[in-house]
Amino acid sequence: MTVQLVEMKNPCQSCIIVSDLMISLFEKIKPEYPDVDFIITIIEKPEEIRKIQGLEVEIFPAVLINDEQITCGNILHRRQLKSYIDIRR
């Protein structure tokens, strides 16, 4: 299983804060999910979103689980992200 965060290379500070919170969250729950790959993908230009399977909307940062977009532009709470992972495992 992969949990992927997709963010822009040069985001505004609002997006940076959302991304940082998601990255912190990934780091926190990683030990509980040794079988899950947590990936961070940085895209330089909006055209590159075509290369990311499952990405649907041009709002960042986005979180995908197994190529299925879970959210974009929003912060997930630990309990939410864990539930999303657990029901798909």
Binding site: I17, L21, S24, L25, I75, L76, H77, R78, R79
Partner: peptide
């Protein structure tokens, strides 16, 4: 609110 989020992390929502 943004500063509180920096200090509390995502725990703030719950």
């Amino acid at each position: 609110y943004t500063l509180a989020l920096h200090l509390m992390g995502t725990e703030i929502f719950y």
